[in-house]
Amino acid sequence: MIQRFIELGEGYGDFYELLELAKSNQSRLSQMLLLETNKQGQRCASVAVILHPAAKGGFMPIYYCREGITMPTEKLSKRIQLFEQLAYELNVHIKTLEVRPSIDFPDLDLYTQYLTGILRVNHCLPPLTW
């Protein structure tokens, strides 16, 4: 099984594409994640959708929008509300995790390795099988 992070970007279009990926792959939907962080003194979040491995080839994608959603203190972000609404419609629980910001890592590959470890420890990803 190959588990790979696929970053969509931080913009609104990328976020709506992530929602569409979750809707159109509802039969493969494994997890929906909200990864909260503190980036340079600002609370922000990443959203992610994990799909079950493909029947042939065993590819398991983790689509995510990295740290593009600011988390205001007084009310919930509209994008977070849309993400929660979709989870409700698809009958999926959103798992919320506190993670380090990507700027703490010199390379994006190191950050995704860190996230992989966090997701495995929290049982969001199954162990690799050979």
Rank of each mutant, 00 (worst) to 15 (best):
M1F: 13
M1W: 13
M1I: 13
I2K: 10
I6P: 01
E7H: 09
L8T: 04
E10M: 12
E10F: 10
E10P: 09
E10C: 11
G11S: 07
G13H: 15
G13F: 14
Y16V: 14
E17F: 10
L18V: 01
L18C: 02
E20A: 10
L21H: 08
A22N: 05
S24D: 15
S24A: 14
N25W: 03
N25V: 02
N25S: 02
L29R: 05
S30G: 03
S30V: 02
Q31R: 10
M32H: 02
M32Q: 01
L33G: 00
L34A: 15
L35N: 02
L35D: 03
E36C: 13
N38T: 07
Q40F: 14
G41Q: 02
R43M: 09
C44E: 07
A45V: 04
S46W: 06
S46R: 07
V47W: 00
A48S: 07
A48Q: 04
V49Y: 08
V49Q: 05
I50G: 06
L51Q: 00
L51V: 00
P53T: 05
P53N: 05
P53V: 01
K56W: 12
K56Y: 13
K56F: 14
G57N: 02
G58Q: 05
F59C: 07
M60V: 09
M60D: 09
M60H: 11
P61A: 06
I62H: 06
I62N: 05
Y63F: 02
Y64I: 03
Y64C: 03
Y64D: 01
C65F: 04
C65M: 06
R66F: 08
G68K: 00
G68C: 01
I69A: 04
M71N: 04
M71Y: 01
E74D: 15
S77R: 03
K78Q: 12
L82H: 13
F83D: 01
F83Y: 00
F83L: 00
Q85G: 09
Q85W: 10
L86T: 03
L86P: 04
A87F: 12
V92G: 08
T96Y: 10
L97H: 03
L97N: 02
L97Q: 02
S102I: 08
I103P: 08
F105S: 00
P106R: 10
P106M: 10
L108H: 02
D109A: 10
L110F: 07
Q113E: 12
L115E: 07
L115M: 08
T116F: 01
L119G: 00
L119N: 01
R120V: 11
V121Y: 14
H123T: 14
H123R: 14
H123M: 13
C124N: 03
P126L: 06
P126C: 04
W130S: 14
